[in-house]
Computed example of a mutant assay.
Amino acid sequence: MTELPAEISIPDFLAALPEGAGRLNETMGVELREISAQRVVGTMPVEGNTQPYGMLHGGASVVLAETLGSVGSGLHAYPLGKIALGVDINATHHRPAFPGTVVTGTATAVHLGRTSAVYEVVITDEAGKRVCTSRITCALIDPPA
Rank of each mutant, 00 (worst) to 15 (best):
T2C: 06
E7S: 14
R33K: 15
I83A: 00
T133R: 13
S70E: 08
D12R: 10
V63R: 08
A97D: 06
E19R: 03
G22C: 15
A117K: 15
V102F: 01
E34A: 13
I10G: 04
L4Q: 09
T50C: 15
G54N: 02
K82L: 02
D88A: 13
T124E: 11
G113M: 11
Y78H: 11
I83C: 00
A107P: 02
A16H: 05
N25H: 10
N25G: 09
V30R: 00
Y119S: 10
E34G: 10
L32F: 09
V102N: 03
K129D: 07
L80G: 07
G59T: 01
A16V: 05
G74F: 02
P11N: 06
D125L: 12
D125G: 15
G69E: 06
T27I: 13
T43H: 13
L140Q: 04
V121G: 09
V122Y: 11
V121N: 11
V41M: 14
G54C: 02
L64W: 00
T104L: 08
P45I: 00
A77T: 15
R39G: 01
L17Q: 12
R95Q: 12
G72P: 04
I141C: 05
A145G: 12
T101W: 00
L32Q: 08
P144C: 09
P11R: 06
A145F: 04
M28N: 02
T104D: 08
V110I: 15
F98T: 11
T133F: 06
G29W: 07
C138M: 11
S9N: 05
I89K: 08
G59H: 03
T50G: 10
L32W: 08
L56A: 01
I141F: 05
A91S: 15
V46Q: 03
V118N: 01
G59A: 00
V87M: 07
K129I: 00
M28T: 14
R135N: 09
V40Y: 08
G48C: 05
T133W: 07
A91D: 02
T2E: 15
A77L: 06
S116A: 13
G69P: 05
P99G: 03
E26V: 14
N49F: 05
S70G: 05
P144T: 08
P96I: 02
K129M: 04
T106Q: 11
P5K: 12
S61T: 10
I10A: 01
D142Y: 00
R23C: 01
S134D: 09
H57C: 08
A145C: 02
V62T: 15
R135F: 04
E120N: 10
T92Y: 10
A127R: 14
G100W: 12
L140Y: 05
G81L: 07
V131G: 07
G20L: 02
A97T: 06
Q51Y: 03
L80I: 01
L64A: 03
Q38V: 05
T50A: 13
V103L: 03
P144M: 03
D142S: 09
